[in-house]
Design a protein around this nucleic acid. Sequence first.
DNA 1: TAGAACATTGACAGCGTTGTCATTTTAACT
DNA 2: AGTTAAAATGACAACGCTGTCAATGTTCTA
Lengths: 343, 343
Amino acid sequence: MKVTINDVAKLAGVSMKTVSRVINKEPSVRKKTYDIVMDAVNTLNYQPNLAARNLAGTSSFTVGLVYDNPNAYYVIDMQNGVLSRCKEEGYELVIHPCNYLDGNMEEDFKTMIKRSRLAGLVLTPPLSEQNSIIDMLDEMGIHYVRVLSGRPTEEDQDTCIYVNDYAAAYEITSHLLSLGHKSIGFLCGDKEHKSTTERLEGYQAALKDHSISMNDELIYEGQYSFESGVEGAKALLGENNPKNITALLGGNDEMAAGALFASRLMGIEIPQQLSITGFEDSPFSRQTWPKLTTAHQANDVISQHAARLLFRKTRGARNQDKDIITTFTPSLVVRESSGPTTA
Amino acid sequence: MKVTINDVAKLAGVSMKTVSRVINKEPSVRKKTYDIVMDAVNTLNYQPNLAARNLAGTSSFTVGLVYDNPNAYYVIDMQNGVLSRCKEEGYELVIHPCNYLDGNMEEDFKTMIKRSRLAGLVLTPPLSEQNSIIDMLDEMGIHYVRVLSGRPTEEDQDTCIYVNDYAAAYEITSHLLSLGHKSIGFLCGDKEHKSTTERLEGYQAALKDHSISMNDELIYEGQYSFESGVEGAKALLGENNPKNITALLGGNDEMAAGALFASRLMGIEIPQQLSITGFEDSPFSRQTWPKLTTAHQANDVISQHAARLLFRKTRGARNQDKDIITTFTPSLVVRESSGPTTA
DNA sequence: TAGAACATTGACAGCGTTGTCATTTTAACT
DNA sequence: AGTTAAAATGACAACGCTGTCAATGTTCTA
């Protein structure tokens, strides 16, 4: 019933070490031997036992995905991406949600690592931006790949996957500008997040390039939540929209949805009286009314590349994956929540 | 740096087997010995190595969570619930998203099980309802716990956690009835899902108890998706709402949101002209406008109990967790999408 | 064609636990 | 106190694999 490396070895007529070499794709196995062994592997439908591999080897076959993110869509996408690569490479994934504010994060990490020695970690924002965590991991000698907001200029392409929020925000803002909007509000997330400052700078750069003067009063800092989107829209639009805002950039889809909600309460027609845009293209940007214009962020693809990058680091010479993309730029998706100014 | 069971044994002045007994909470360890060992465990901050335990032991310390569900909120909640129990009990979780239509599910399962022998599986709908899968698992001798839609009458309380959708639908429908609605439409999911028939029967029972005659034309079968909610509302409400529908029961929040969207397109005011209710109380039932009246389903708690049930089965005598709840009834949450009939 | 250099394979220990079974200690009886 | 049963502990192999290093095969050089 249970087939081990020995069974394969016996059937192939080689030592178990040779089978081990084959399944680990080690060099210096004759092509012919390789084929014989693979035949045996296939006829027996052999699956190497992960526990044994992790115990015996110096390297491990489990990777961790660490996140502290309230956005279910985001987490699922990241998870699926990493998982799909793991499956292909025979790794297993242990997920590790955590709460940065908990404080005992360090202990938490250590426990996780002791329990199952890890090949490496995929870190997602906002954890991936926390220097204290990075330092800790470096100190512990743990491999990791960070997914974070940034631009191609930042060249740590061995451990980072960048999401170019700057460019995406620039594009969305340009879209709004080309529609004729001049007074564009920005509902940003909290400034602790790198994505917030990146998106903000993209927004500002676009305005500048279109010779529109900046106005800090058009910027509202929230927390990337639906509620703060509601609050932000109320704050910015005020009683009678004194700032003559005709478009609102949501820091993410949730905030945009919140703004949509608030507009409704205030009796504002979207997009006739106000354009609203989101960010990320999560499923519910398609489930609002009207549907949100947003920037599509391919989280599943991003996380797949993050996993590939991790495997490349982890397995050194055995894996020279060359086609890893390390910078992703979310792309504009125009839907019904944005339109030309009527003014 | 790396502390093993031997280090603990040495410090405690006992054999490693005794330490093993202590960390596994085996009986027949003297209280005094137990304390000494635990002290050593704590001062050394010992964490048993999972790979070694899985390899050496007959039982395993990893559980699997299997799902084929497009709802990110649901999956995350289930995951977190199971994970929190795993953490407490020292288990690790491997998640296994799958696509039932893929066909090669069986192979898939077998591979997963071979790679890391599993203590057991937590199955979520719709997989948990698939008899072919259950049979397969029984045949393979794999422990599992199923989370599925059902009522207390069904008494497989050793392997099943029931979500009483029937009662919840009854309650929601009653809520609508008490508001004065008489012609209530139902946007149900596809009938393949047990939750669909359960919710449908609850709806029908409530109507019956209020002496309202049934009308199959008030029922639209969709797929639990936003889009099918849109379609359903259009179909039911038609050109001029010929059926005089004043309330619409969504099979889940997404369908309700879809119905909300469609109503908007048709210029129908919610809740003045039409009440709409959801099911599940997922985050976006709070992010629609108006917010959805729905039935709160505590998925995280449900999955925690599922995990506990699994552990009880798995560890037999060593674990006699008695406070496991095996039936959960989602509870009505009244928000702004439902109101009295104006007719 | 001998010998060196290199490529390929194998024997065996060891990874950190748990299971088995033997041994020692304690408790419970005459 | 002496015996016996039961409880508590320990010694050691085994889990299925990989790392190390030695052994064998192959190819190349002169």
